[in-house]
Simulated assay, not measured.
Amino acid sequence: MSAYSIFRLYNLAAYQLIIKQLTYEFALQQTHTVAESVFFIPWYYTAEPEPEPLGETEQSLDIKGIQIFKANFFLIQKLYLENL
């Protein structure tokens, strides 16, 4: 199997997991009162996001009240590794 094929399979699996989680969040809203729903996704910034270095909420997406938070993966990884 080529590296490209492995990459495509990995991306498809990741995409399916994201869809599965967002579907779960939406279904939960149908039967429970949910004050706030935030979906955390690791994001690879080329420059530190402003004004919050931890990440930012994606404003261009409106998924039935589910907020998408693009977390600064490198900062989270750095803080984690410094505290081992």
Score class of each variant (00 low, 15 high):
I18K: 12
Y10H: 07
N83V: 04
L84E: 09
L54F: 08
K20D: 15
S5Q: 12
I41L: 15
T31H: 06
K70F: 00
F40Y: 15
Y44P: 03
L79M: 10
Y44W: 12
T46P: 03
L9I: 05
F69P: 00
N83G: 01
Y45S: 06
F69W: 03
Y80I: 04
K70W: 01
L28K: 10
L61C: 02
N11G: 04
M1H: 07
P51N: 10
E50I: 13
F74N: 11
L79C: 04
V38P: 01
P53G: 10
I19R: 12
S60D: 06
S60Y: 05
E36C: 05
F40S: 01
N72L: 06
E50P: 04
P49Y: 00
F74G: 03
G55Y: 05
L81A: 05
E48A: 11
Q77D: 13
G65R: 11
Y80M: 08
F40A: 09
T57R: 11
A13S: 10
L79H: 09
Y4T: 08
L75W: 01
L28E: 11
F74P: 02
P53W: 06
F40P: 00
T33Y: 11
P49D: 00
E25H: 10
E58A: 13
G65D: 11
S5Y: 06
G55E: 03
I6W: 08
N72D: 06
A35N: 06
S2W: 04
N72Q: 06
K64F: 12
P53K: 08
P42C: 02
E36G: 06
T46E: 15
V38S: 01
K20I: 01
P53V: 12
I19T: 11
Y10V: 10
A71Y: 07
F74K: 11
E25L: 11
W43P: 01
V38K: 03
Q16T: 10
I6A: 10
Y15H: 14
L84C: 09
T33E: 11
L54V: 07
V34S: 04
Y4H: 08
F74A: 14
A27Y: 13
M1C: 05
I63K: 01
I63D: 02
I19H: 03
P49N: 02
Y10I: 13
E52S: 10
K78T: 13
P51K: 01
